[in-house]
Amino acid sequence: MSKKNRITGALFVGTTAFSAFLIIAVIIILLVVIIIGGKDTFSWEFLTSFPQDGMMKGGIFPAIYGTALLVVIMSVAAVPFGTITAIYLTEYASETSILAQTIRFAVRTLATVPSIIFGLFGLGFFIKFVGGGMDDVFLGGQLKWGQPNILWASLTMSLLTLPVVIVSVEEAIRTVPREMREASLALGATKWETIRRIVIPGSRSGIMTGTILAVSRGAGEVAPILFTGAAYYLATLPTSLSDQFMNLGYHIYIMATQSANVDQTLPIQFATTLVLLMLTFMLNLTAVIIRSRLRRKAK
């Protein structure tokens, strides 16, 4: 091979390697900058106390609490529905049926719909249509459910995370060997018994992983809750489904763009961002631990 050719090759491979390392470098810089920026403010105190002085000081406990509540309600809605959809796609639908293909297309579409659209849908459907309808029917028009609250925000978020659950549960179900299903059926189990006793237990770790991925997605998304329930500041924690709530991501957004003195609260902003990043990280860590424990137990 000619020398010129070899140089071109080296240059080309070098460019591809450079691109890969550039991405990695940006990820590292991002992490490091946020850790450095937030580490001084970050403390137990910061995590457990309320904001003070018009959010110029104090902690972010209500935002953490609101985010946790949001993802819990969201999971309660998204995980069972996502799991059942995955079961349908793998166990009941024939791969070529039009219905199954339409569902798959819908799931993929759902995964690519911009998150702000979910916010609009939450507003138009949950708040105005369902909530407003509930107020009209049960409360004689008195405004209670027809306004943003944690329930509507969580349900909106669950639509967004539904595909995440479906995809990872489906993947897990497909790893349950066909031989095991056949063994169960050959023993005289019905289809549903086989699903309930063999398929679902066999994909437990996938359901767990799907839940955790959905939670970490739901904890970080802000656009869907901008106008479906997140609040700028609340002096008390939400106690009912019809209450508004504070949220980590929303808090970051508000503090960084709308607070009276952005520079003064900069450490708080960095620390809040650090908390959100750590939360995502810890969720993934938990996923790994649960999965390995499940596998050990199966052995």
């Binding site: 060997p177 031989e179 095991m180 056949e182 063994a183 169960s184 023993l187 005289g188 189990a189 006793r197």
Partner: peptide, 25 residues
Amino acid sequence: RKKVGMVFQKSNPFTKSIYENVAYG
């Protein structure tokens, strides 16, 4: 299938205990 049982070429135990495997049917 309860009347006509089957044993497969590749052994296919459930990922459960021995007891649970046999008690499954």
